[in-house]
Design a protein around this nucleic acid. Structure first.
Lengths: 348, 348
DNA sequence: TTGAAAGCGCTAACAC
DNA sequence: GTGTTAGCGCTTTCAA
C-alpha cells in the first residue's frame, strides 16, 4: 500500500536516458537540450518526483541547515530573533534546526553534538547563562564551521558576534532621572554569572559618577530572576531607612513583578523604573515604566543570520576564512513614558 | 586547514577490522566482543568520530525528523505547544523542523513540500486559518506519512487530531455571568473563515438559549483581529442604544485592546469580559477579565506529539495503519477572577 | 548534448 | 564474532 517515491533512476529508465541527464535536466543545467529537459520534467511531474534532500546533503556534504541555540524559546525576545533568522534562512533556502539550552551548559553541549551529527553548515547561538565556557564549541572551530554569537556572547575577540550595547541608553535614562531630580537610584541586577549583569553594573556606576553621585551599595541588590527573588530584592529597597526614588531593574519580568508588589501595598507611586525590554510592544503599552531599553532582537537576529550566510557562502566559494571577524554592537534605544506617573495608570 | 571528520571506514582501517564491525561496535551490538567494542570506541574517541546523520538517514530512509507547522511562532500559544512537542521529540531522539504558515495556504503548501524533500517521518500541524483546504497534505497521505492536527483542525473524520473543546467552559462562563444578573451579553467574534469562530458562535447561542435569553443580533459583532478591528467592534457595542453589560471576546488580544479603549474613555466599569486565553499566565495576572478560558497549548502539544510518536513507531514496527484514528478533544478550563471588579484594578 | 561510472558514509543481509 | 558485499539516491568528473 505504501507508495514509493519515484527516484531519478526510475525517471531515467522510463525515458531511456541516463540518471545524470535527468539530474541535470531537473535543475536546468544548460548543457541539456530543451527538448530533453522538458521531457524529463514532464515525467517527473507525472511521477510526483520529490527530490531526496537526505541524499543530496549526503552527496554534497552540505546540509543546507543552520543550527540555532537559544536559552529558551518561550522568551519573546528569542521568538523575535528566531523570526528574523528564519526569514533570512528561508530566503537562502536554508533550514533551521533549533535547540533550547535552558541556560544549561551541558544541554548546550549536547545540542552542539547533535548539530554536528547533522552536519549543520553554521551555527547561531546565544550562549547559556549558567557558566558557558565556550569549550563545547571548539569542535566547530576545528572543523571550520562558522559560528555567530548574538545577544549573550562570550568575552573573546576572535569570534563573530552581534550584541546590544545598552550603555549609552542606560546613561541616557539615568540622565533623565537625574534631571527629574532623582538622586537615590537603585539597581536590581541579575545573577552575577551573567556578563549582562556586569555590564549593567558598570554602566550604572558610570552613570552615577558622571553626575557626581556617590555610590551607595545598599541601593544595589540582586535577584536570581525568580519571582520570589524579584520581590525580595524590591522589598529590600522598600524597607531601606533611606529608600531610593528610582529603580533600574534587570529586565521587564522583574519590572512586572515589582509592579505587582507595589500595587498590592498601595505604593504604586513609590518608584520610577527603568527596565530592559524583553516584552513585545503591547505589554509595555499596558505597563509603562519610566523608561524602557529596547534591544531589538529581530535586528540582532537579522544581522547574525546575514553574517552567518556570508560566512557560509564565503566558505563555499573559497576556502579562506574572512580576514577579520564580523563584530557588531547594535545600539539599544531607550523609550521614555513620561506621562506615566503612577503605576496604576499603566493601563492607558 | 579544514580537518575532515573521521569516518567509520577510516576507523576500520586503523584497527584492521571491517566497517560493519565498527558500525556494530559503535552502537553496542551484542554480537561484537567486548574487547573489540572497546578498541573501536577508543579509536573513535581519539579520532573525534562524529556519526554522519545525513548518511544514516539516507541509508535507513528515515530522517528522524518531524515537521511542525504553526501559523506564527510569535504567539505564546504556539511557543508553549512547541516546547511541549520539542521535549517529547528530544526524548525520542527526534528533531523538529519548523515552519510558519502565517495563516497562508500557499506558504503552508510550500512548507509541506520542503518537509517532503526532507522526508520528515511525520507532521504536526495547526492549519492555516485563511482557507486551508487540506489538499496540500494529500501527498503525505499517499506516502503514508502520519499527520497529527492540533489546535486548528480541519472538519474531517478520517484524521488524527487533538483540539480544545471550549463549549463547556464557555457555557460555564455564561452561566456565571447570568447568575450575576447579566442578561445582555455580547460576543466579539473572529473572522468567519475560522472554525473557532463558528464554534464560539454556536456555544454562545446555546448558552443564551439554555437560559431562555433571546438572541439579539446587534450584540454579535466581529473583528478581523487587528487592533482597529477590535476597537471598532467594541465601539459598536458601546454606542448601542441598549448596550450589553458583559462581553465575550474572541481572545486575549481582543480583550487587551478593549481594556485600552475603555480606560481611555474612563469607562473601565462598563463591561465584564470573558476571554479566550492565548497569553502566558503572568499577563492575566496583570489584566484580569471576569473569566478566562484556558486551552492548554502545552497539553495539546504533548498529546499531539505522543500521538505522532505512536504513529511513527507503529509504522516502523508493522506496516498497518492503526485501525482507528487518534482523536481527542481536551477540555478547556475557565478561570474566574471574581475579585476584579474594575478594569483599572486589573493590575493587582 | 549525453552517458558511464565512481562514490559520498553508513547499514544490514548473508556468509563464514 | 567478524567480514563481504551490495546498495540507499544523487552529483559529478570524465569520456564520448
Amino acid at each position: 500500500m505504501e507508495r514509493k517515491i519515484t527516484t531519478i533512476k526510475e525517471i531515467a529508465k522510463i525515458l531511456n536516458v541516463s540518471t545524470s541527464t535527468v539530474s541535470r535536466a531537473l535543475k536546468g543545467h544548460p548543457g541539456i537540450s530543451p527538448v530533453t529537459t522538458d521531457r524529463v520534467r514532464k515525467v517527473a511531474g507525472e511521477q510526483d518526483y520529490i527530490p531526496n534532500q537526505s541524499a543530496i546533503s549526503f552527496n554534497k556534504k552540505r546540509s543546507y541547515t543552520l543550527g540555532l541555540i537559544v536559552p529558551e524559546f518561550s522568551e519573546p525576545f528569542f521568538c523575535s530573533a528566531f523570526n528574523a533568522i528564519e526569514n533570512i534562512a528561508t530566503a537562502h533556502d536554508y533550514n533551521i534546526i533549533i535547540g533550547q539550552s535552558y541556560d544549561d551548559m551541558e544541554t548546550e553541549a549536547k545540542l552542539v553534538k547533535k548539530f554536528m551529527n547533522h552536519r549543520v553548515d553554521g551555527l547561531i547561538i546565544s550562549i547559556a547563562k549558567k557558566g558557558s565556557d565556550y569549550q563545547q564549541l571548539s569542535i566547530l572551530e576545528k572543523l571550520n564551521i562558522p559560528v555567530v554569537f548574538f545577544d549573550c556572547v562570550p568575552d573573546r575577540k576572535d569570534i563573530h558576534f552581534v550584541a546590544s550595547d545598552f550603555q549609552t541608553s542606560l546613561l541616557k535614562g539615568m540622565q533623565e532621572l537625574i534631571t527629574a531630580g532623582h538622586r537615590k537610584i537603585a539597581l536590581i541586577n541579575g545573577p552575577t554569572i551573567l556578563s549582562a549583569t556586569r555590564q549593567r553594573l558598570v554602566a550604572y556606576i558610570k552613570g552615577l559618577r558622571d553626575h557626581n553621585i556617590e555610590i551607595n551599595s545598599s541601593l544595589i541588590v540582586t535577584t536570581d530572576l525568580s519571582r520570589e527573588g524579584n520581590l525580595s530584592a524590591l522589598n529590600k529597597l522598600i524597607h531601606l531607612s533611606n529608600p531610593p526614588t528610582a529603580v533600574i531593574v534587570f529586565n521587564d519580568y522583574v519590572f512586572l513583578d515589582c509592579l505587582d508588589l507595589l500595587n498590592s501595598k498601595g505604593l504604586e507611586d513609590l518608584f520610577k523604573f527603568i527596565s530592559f525590554g524583553n516584552m513585545p510592544g503591547w505589554v509595555l503599552y499596558h505597563h509603562k515604566p519610566f523608561g524602557s531599553i529596547e534591544q531589538f532582537p529581530a535586528e540582532q537576529g537579522k544581522i547574525a543570520a546575514n553574517m552567518l550566510m556570508q560566512l557560509m557562502i564565503g566558505k563555499e566559494a573559497e576556502d579562506e576564512p574572512p580576514a577579520k571577524n564580523f563584530q557588531k554592537y547594535i545600539d539599544s534605544d531607550i523609550v521614555f513614558f513620561r506621562d506615566s506617573i503612577k503605576a496604576d495608570q499603566a493601563i492607558v
